[in-house]
Design a protein around this nucleic acid. Sequence first.
DNA 1: TCTGTGTTTAATCAATTGATTAAAAAATTT
DNA 2: AAATTTTTTAATCAATTGATTAAACACAGA
Lengths: 206, 206
Amino acid sequence: MAKETASASTELKIKQAARKIFMQKGYAAARTRDIAEAAGINLALLNYYFRSKEKLFDIIMLENLQQFIEGIKEILNNRQTSLEQKTETIVTNYINLLTQQPDLPLFVLHELRTHPKEIISKIDRDKFIHRSYFMQQIKDAAKERKAASINPLHFLMNIISLTIFPFVASPIIQNIGGLNQQDFNALMEERKKLIPKWIKAIMQKK
Amino acid sequence: MAKETASASTELKIKQAARKIFMQKGYAAARTRDIAEAAGINLALLNYYFRSKEKLFDIIMLENLQQFIEGIKEILNNRQTSLEQKTETIVTNYINLLTQQPDLPLFVLHELRTHPKEIISKIDRDKFIHRSYFMQQIKDAAKERKAASINPLHFLMNIISLTIFPFVASPIIQNIGGLNQQDFNALMEERKKLIPKWIKAIMQKK
DNA sequence: TCTGTGTTTAATCAATTGATTAAAAAATTT
DNA sequence: AAATTTTTTAATCAATTGATTAAACACAGA
């Protein structure tokens, strides 16, 4: 019993340390020694638990992607909420997540480029976003209502662009605007209410 | 004479190869041997011309940043063009640039995180964006016209987010939408006209 | 043609780094 | 408490990689 909790906790410690180091430095620049040190354990122990750096990375990356995807899966397919409500929930959820883990999107996107596309195919294997009720609502809004006709893909791109990109480009934005971390977070907090408004304005038939 | 052109061309060849490899793999994963091979020269020659991997990287990165910044400097300070015209020009220019070099923004942003902030401070040393005529126009529009009051920083973030992020996230977007490279480029081409419209809609006083 | 300067290469070095191994330590079982 | 299994470590290996060196090469001017 004590054995299992001990091993479970060291495994968790390693994973947490790995997540931190990988996200800070990226896969290539992250050294297994850094991760071991951050986890407070020996380098050999890391390989004992996870076989190799790449195996460990795959696990971390998969968990990150799930965090990204699972977080919006039920939102997109909720039949009870309007398009406006979904937008607001998505924006709020992501801004909350990224305020806690600002390095997450850049890490995922960068490694997605470099690494073989095995990872990419895992993202949306069954095209659930494409088939989601959310997508149907966008199409319907364009037809039934007086909303402007818009490619649903543009619509989705707009929401995630407006929400995520500021975090990706935060070093530049903070530099341009002369903002410290707190100022920046406050600005992102503002966007929780602004982005849904803007999205609505975009949809308005001109 | 032949000597100088030869050395100039090899220097250029190395830089072009370095830009390619660095952008594909990132600084840490890019090997100097890869760059040398891509340039069709010997590894030692690379160090003969540029002293070290880091020196070469600094040069490439600086050129990339300049490409990014210089491209909008005169646009932002043009006293003859309206806010709408500036928006359209910025969007068109960046979409053209990124269609040619889709890896550029992710590379810059990723390395900006990892590397010491010396680089960051070079981006907008004299705060020219903040002082630009463009920024003044945004403030004026909010006051004088009937436009909605908007933090100029939000305005700027919106334009670059809507323009640049789709390129950064293109692997995901192409996967979700089931798009090949040509489809994706066509979608980005559409955005040249759409984004200015959307920005205008956002500015509209509701 | 010879000399000197700049260019290029092959070979090698030294440091880093992912991974392994064998042994010690701790925990669990009998 | 002894035996067995699991966990942890120190030491080491082997491959990679950025960088250097010394020698060969090209080419200009004398």
